[in-house]
Design a binder for these strands. Structure first.
Lengths: 144, 144
DNA sequence: ATAATATCAGTAGTAGAGTACGGAGTCAAG
DNA sequence: CTTGACTCCGTACTCTACTACTGATATTAT
């Protein structure tokens, strides 16, 4: 099994070393094993976890939410049904994100293909039409 | 045309009044018209813009990026070709977001349908497999 | 007309997510 | 066996995106 020192893994995923210590502190990353010198050692699983965290952040999840996503299966206190229920909520959230991103994408596609930029009055920005006002905010609902 | 006072529109979209003043300050929202009393007045277009900002934020865009998205068509200094080029980059970014969200979605669907939570060892978290490490980070590229 | 409520502008404070700094211990090359 | 690079830990600082507070006007309800 590959293993890395903190500087190596930081380099590999493109984050600051301090970020790794920070993730450890807020418990989104587990405490890594240590060498005799107390240097941290990371493995492939840590690498995967960090890549997931990085991308999920870019996709708009908070570290708190990412922690929940990563812990979905470990919640041994919850019944399988509970976990299922919560996973379903995350799923709904993600489906809505995909839907809205697709709407934005469509507008950009039109913009790129037709190059309509000159033809639009300053007042009508096509991108404003993509969000359906009927979509209610789901904030404050269930969390996993 | 409908119009709203700051408190009304804040209520309508579910943000703090101060947030509206903040958005005005950082110029992501235009300066609104005023009543004789100097009270701000917002209209339907402002409402749409604010809904877009709110949702785009939830989708992981920064206010800076959202500003760029909203200004894509107004950049009259840029040639149509430039705008097109930049819109294409945004498009690529969004397509990748959709792709990765779909991967996460698939894992959650499996989780929900098969309720595999009990069957997995603590070590193997299915969600960690969704991000393809070959995907390079595109940070620092073009911005609009 | 007057109390309660809303808005004004400016400034200060907060939460989340890092990022930097400093002095000490560790390792690897010359 | 020392010099330079790496890592350790704790603490302090930064940046983004708000959020709160204040004392002064403005509007609205009774």
């Amino acid at each position: 099994m590959e293993h890395y020192k903190v500087g190596e893994i930081a380099e590999k995923i493109g984050v600051n070393i301090e970020t790794l210590r920070y993730y450890e502190k807020i418990k989104i990353m587990p405490k890594p094993k240590r060498m005799e010198s107390r240097y941290r050692i990371y493995d492939e699983l840590d690498l995967k976890r960090l890549l997931f965290i990085k991308r999920a952040k870019e996709l708009g999840f908070t570290l708190k939410e990412i922690k929940e996503l990563l812990n979905i299966k470990i919640e041994s206190t919850a019944t399988c049904g509970d976990v299922k229920h919560l996973a379903e909520n995350k799923l709904t959230d993600i489906e809505e994100r995909i839907k809205d991103l697709k709407s934005i994408k469509n507008v950009l596609v039109k913009l790129v293909n037709q190059c309509v930029c000159e033809e639009l009055s300053t007042d009508e920005c096509p991108i404003l039409e993509v969000i359906d006002p009927k979509t209610k905010s789901l904030k404050g609902g269930d969390t996993i």
